[in-house]
């Protein structure tokens, strides 16, 4: 590779990119016939005019997506100098009269800014308070985004609302599987009885699978996970999630069961491949090296299995543990 030529190519790409329209040009185009503001033609950092125009674009509910994105970018890039712009964005987010897609774009921008919000500690409580207002929004997408952010912040208010929905004490904010998933960001022991009840009497198959996933954090649910994994009549997704959960909660019991699955002619191939993969990477190598029955079975599967994944798993196993 000719590095000077490589540098010239990149310079040409940068020159081309520099010619692409920015916020001012997009704004001028959208206001065709109207007077573009004075700075429209000059490049450079955002001016007060740019910021005023960008906020107006959002408050007007601008439907032109590129212009809207450019406006959000202008505001985002100026937040370091003017943290109060966060308030302007929050205002648009909370204005239910604005289009949901605009408010969603604003929320995404606020969340992107939140990675830098440590620089503006005074803004963070207001941001989280705004999100709590949005969790009852009629727009499901916006609602879910806000709930997700709060759940990852371990927000007790949203956790209580999610539990209330799962318990049937109030209308559910989101489908049960999403509620369970959100609770998983801050799993508490008091959730486990509820999760076990959901496994027994699930509102949906997806909710049941998510509940099983979270029960891995509960040592006393190891028996339940083993029962689910061992039951060949059980749903395949539930068995696989049980396997992963059992491996986390009780590795020795999982390895014993994984060995059975590998040796069993009537087992599901995907579960078998998964079990071999788990043993390959995480089981005690010395114990495996003494297990001639297992090694023989894996060699046989490498030669005979109709499943490509099983064969692939056996090859990894034998490369690491074979004689």
């Amino acid at each position: 590779m000719d590095i000077p030529e490589y540098r010239r190519q990149l310079s040409a790409e940068l020159e081309q990119a520099a010619g692409q329209p920015g916020f001012r040009e997009l704004l001028a185009r959208s206001r065709r016939g109207a007077e573009p503001h004075a700075a429209a033609a000059s490049p450079g950092p955002a001016t007060e005019d740019d910021l005023t125009a960008a906020i107006a674009v959002l408050r007007d509910g601008e439907p032109d997506e590129p212009l809207r994105s450019a406006a959000l970018q202008v505001i985002s890039s100026a937040v370091d100098e003017q943290p109060d712009l966060i308030d302007a964005l929050t205002g648009v987010l909370l204005d239910a009269a604005r289009p949901a897609d605009l408010r969603t774009a604003v929320l995404d921008t606020l969340q992107q800014i939140s990675f830098r919000m440590v620089a503006f500690p005074g803004k963070r409580p207001d941001y989280l308070a705004a999100l709590r207002s949005v969790i009852d929004d009629p727009d499901a997408g916006l609602r879910q985004r806000a709930i997700g952010i709060l759940a990852r912040e371990k927000d007790e208010y949203v956790q209580r609302r999610l539990i209330d929905g799962l318990e049937g004490r109030s209308a559910a904010l989101v489908p049960a599987e999403k509620a369970i998933q959100y609770l998983g960001y801050d799993i508490h022991a008091e959730y486990f009885p509820l999760l076990r009840r959901i496994v027994e009497n699930p509102p949906s198959p997806a909710a049941r699978t998510e509940a099983v996933r979270l029960l891995a954090a509960d040592p006393s649910s190891a028996d339940l996970l083993l029962t689910l994994l061992s039951n060949k009549q059980e749903n395949g997704d539930v068995r696989r999630v049980s396997a992963i959960g059992l491996q986390s909660a009780a590795p020795a019991r999982f390895e014993e069961q994984a060995r059975r699955i590998v040796l069993d002619d009537d087992e599901d191939d995907q579960l078998r491949a998964m079990s071999i993969t788990a043993l390959t990477h995480f089981a005690n190598p010395e114990a495996l090296s003494r297990d001639d029955e297992l090694t023989g079975r894996i060699e046989q599967l490498r030669a005979d299995s109709a499943s490509q994944q099983v064969r692939q798993a056996t090859m990894s196993y034998l490369a690491k543990h074979g004689t």
Binding site: P175, E177, K178, Q181, G184, I187, A206, E210, R213, L214, A216, A217, V241, I244, G245, Q247, S248, Q270, L271, A273, M274, T277, A278, T280, H281, F282, Q309, Q312, A313, S316
Partner: peptide
């Protein structure tokens, strides 16, 4: 469909656990 990742049966990331909970969303 609800955002929890699925892996192939030979991918060791299927056993990913953080904070005591398996899986990645």
């Amino acid at each position: 469909p609800h955002g929890t990742l699925q892996f192939s049966a030979v991918n060791p990331l299927q056993f990913w656990v953080t904070d005591g909970t398996p899986g990645i969303v």
